[in-house]
Amino acid sequence: MAVDSKTIFDRPVALRDVVTHYCPGCTHGVIHRLVSEALDELGLRERTCGVAPVGCSVLCYNYFDTDFMEAPHGRAPALATGFKRMRPEMIVFTYQGDGDLASIGMGEIVHAANRGEKFTTIFVNNAIYGMTGGQMAPTTLSGQITTTCPAGRDTSHTGQPIRVAELLSALVTPGYIERVAVHTPAHILNAKKAIRKAFTLQRDNKCYTLVEVLSTCPTNWGNTPGEAVEWLDENMIKYFPLGCYKDYVEPEGS
């Protein structure tokens, strides 16, 4: 038997063989895996440096098997800028949640994207602050209940949720921005394509790339993993439509 066995599924080399701290039903694990697969397939792991955010994925440096920096809350794009500018031959990605990127780090992400920094952002949007225990995020949906809007988000009081992919696509410079989800196998396959494309564009030194990934948080949404998948499908995608918001176009004459 052993002689005839063939490995058809394994852990990516860029993902360490460790148990993560993520809650059951959280899709961070899936996203980690997709990033690692892309790095493996493109042969980039040994020249990659990731930037971890503050939030649930703060410890992601323990899960990816690449060099890593741990940034102050929201500043991952600034660290990535400084790093990539000094070592353009390296592959750099920031892994950021919605509080990190769209609240405290909004300034840094807008300017890094607008300068066309040649790194990749994996933006994980689960519409809530996970690590601190379920507070309202800039992407929390209207009416969604969190510990700091227990009656549901009142948009007359706090404004409408921020659509990051659309907002950054309004900038002229950024090259590739796509929103994907990972709550069904079909969505996962699409998300993989987008992440791989982002790293390919970075490898080829083309442009700033961002993939927004809609993600679940059953613990803080107060539902089961199965219900969370349904809730995302029924509520989040309506407000955060999936698709490519900005596709890379070769400049004329190149």
Partner: peptide, 12 residues
């Protein structure tokens, strides 16, 4: 704020 964090990344 961003500049000092760029420095952080660059120093790494």
């Amino acid at each position: 704020l961003a500049v000092a964090n760029m420095l952080f990344g660059a120093a790494s």
